[in-house]
Design a protein around this nucleic acid. Structure first.
Lengths: 174, 174
DNA sequence: CGCTTCTTTCACAAACTTGTGAAGTTAAGG
DNA sequence: CCTTAACTTCACAAGTTTGTGAAAGAAGCG
């Protein structure tokens, strides 16, 4: 694809920037409601809605009307949770941020990390309350639930990869 | 090692309150990190760690050192997301809050509600960006992912119920 | 090398959240 | 009915979080 994807790519459909913005803000709002900090959510939504799947810091700042500092912070967050990756553009000090079509919801599912910590806390609880007490038994059951979910999610992702291939041909976007 | 305390007599076991508190705060902290507001997280953890699975407002206030107002707010939140239910104690104006051993992680999984809203936003996005554009295709794939997850989660919960029965005999605690 | 362009860091002000005391509301039990 | 126990609502103070401007930090390119 060309370096200037924005202008060059009008081939298919004339895009209404206002409609795009509406989607970006709406989707970002849903992410926020699910616990994602606001700026990261907006930046992420903007990337999702871009044709190339990559935008520069300047483009993000312009589209979302936020300062370079805000972009910087948001991107740092997103990179940390593996929802975007950063690439340096070879002949420039410009940085590009990219959403890897598939990789990001794999990251989403990687709330595994979260689950692991829950499991740890629960194990502690079973120990200190005593496995024989009613409360201890409840915690043990909850723990078993999470352990079950853990393995199930892994299998689910495998099935998804197969399913996706069936739906969309081979590898995802990018 | 804590068996002496655990093993104590009577229906309501004499429990090392400090160990309980440690678990409550630790588990609550994990919930907070996952996006649950603090007071609801603490109240919920306290309920989880109680033998009966129910506590009154006064008991919660005492154990967590928070005002009745805070209990009230926390419980309202938890009831809304179906993590606890409220019952009125027959001959009294006392209210009891209960964690239904199994029901609550079914609620957890009911991120369906969340997912449904994501799906809606994504469908909107596919429409307004155009299904034929690269961005539109990315959104469509993401949408397909969530639709897939939706059905998978339902099936997973069925498998869990079977699995649980195998592990713990009959149906859950309560 | 040093100029220029882009990004990050930092301190702070604005905006939002949270938990509290106090007043308000509901219903049990005399 | 009236009292009183229990929960809820409200306004606000304290504490966080958020996004910004300003300045410093990298890195291409002449």
């Amino acid at each position: 694809m060309t370096e200037r994807a924005d202008r060059a790519d009008r081939s298919t459909v004339e895009r209404d920037p206002e409609a795009v913005s509406r989607f970006v803000e709406h989707f970002a709002a849903q992410l926020v409601e699910a616990g994602v900090p606001r700026m990261p959510a907006r930046v992420f939504a903007a990337l999702l809605a871009s044709d190339s799947g990559t935008l520069t810091s300047a483009e993000l700042g312009e589209r979302l009307r936020i300062s370079p500092a805000a972009v910087s912070g948001a991107v740092r967050y997103l990179a940390q949770v593996h929802m975007v990756s950063r690439e340096r553009e070879p002949g420039s000090r410009r940085e590009r941020y990219r959403v890897h079509g598939d990789q990001w919801y794999e990251a989403l599912t990687s709330r595994e990390t979260v689950i692991k910590r829950w499991e740890h806390a629960l194990r502690e609880g079973v120990d200190s309350l005593g496995a024989a007490t009613p409360a201890g038994r409840r915690l043990a059951e909850t723990l078993a639930f999470f352990e079950f979910v853990d393995t199930e999610i892994a299998e689910m992702m495998n099935r998804w990869r197969a399913h996706r291939e069936r739906l969309f041909g081979t590898q995802g976007t990018h």
